[in-house]
């Protein structure tokens, strides 16, 4: 059984239908990406799955039906979203941001261990743990957002445009970290403009157009597909 199984997801902003009938699944330990043009419904899909937007359709996650649950309950089930723009708490310190990631957890000792793990994965955070997060560069904020998400011990980690607004060097660094997170066996659902990078780190992908999946398959196949190359990989 899949970790996440979505059938006929529909999300609307008023009369504008942003997602119309999307089918999607992510298996345990799998890294899956959603690629597509601006406005294809990628961010909307993640927000709906996280419970931030009302949606129709069947969403099954880790044995629970998610339909209509409030966002904080979905988060507590281990479906963790790192939102577009990172959503760090600017007036909190790095440490406080990470503590917020573990907000719903009661196992204090394991949280302490996870904190050490996050600091070893992201040493830059350890150096600056008492600084206010609002002072950080975009790349550092993205690292903090990733670290904070790991603190929640996600069953499935959803990342929305982690490369957005970052310098090319920083994009490489952030995707290196994402690669390490995948290597640790964390299940991942990645939304990304940079289709080339997304297909490189993920095992499977979906191509979204106008709020529905038009293509799906193993990442290597999608990357080799002439239509995908022309539309999303900038090759002729």
């Amino acid at each position: 059984m899949s970790l996440l199984a979505v059938e006929q997801l529909r999300v609307a902003y008023g009369r504008i239908r942003a997602v119309q009938g999307l089918d999607l699944r992510v298996d345990e330990g799998e890294a899956v990406c959603l690629i597509g043009a601006n406005g294809a419904g990628k961010t909307t899909t993640l927000k709906a799955l996280a419970g931030l937007l009302p949606a129709q359709g069947a969403i099954q996650f880790d044995g629970h039906r998610l339909g209509g649950r409030p966002a904080h309950e979905i988060a507590r089930l281990g479906l963790t979203l790192v939102p577009e723009g990172r959503g760090i708490f600017p007036r909190m310190t790095v440490l406080e941001n990470l503590q917020m990631g573990a907000y719903a957890r009661r196992d204090r000792h394991a949280v302490k261990d996870d904190l050490e793990q996050v600091f070893s994965l992201l040493p830059r955070l350890a150096e600056r743990k008492t600084q206010k997060a609002g002072l950080f560069s975009g790349g550092e904020q993205q690292m903090l957002a990733l670290g904070r998400a790991l603190m929640s011990q996600p069953r499935l980690l959803m990342l929305d445009e982690p490369s957005m607004g970052l310098a090319p060097v920083m994009v490489q660094t952030v995707f290196g970290i994402i690669g390490q997170i995948i290597a640790r066996g964390v299940s991942l659902l990645l939304v990304e403009q940079n289709a080339r990078l997304a297909l490189k780190v993920c095992q499977r992908g979906y191509v979204l157009e106008h709020g529905a999946a038009t293509l799906s398959g193993p990442a290597t196949e999608l990357a080799a597909d002439p239509a995908v190359q022309a539309a999303y990989l900038g090759e002729v």
Partner: peptide, 21 residues
């Protein structure tokens, strides 16, 4: 206290952390 400050800074993100607003 942290949850209160988190909501003050961003209510949706606080919810994503599992905070019952």
């Amino acid at each position: 206290g942290r949850a209160m400050r988190a909501i003050a800074q961003s209510q949706p993100v606080a919810q994503l952390m599992g905070v019952n607003v």
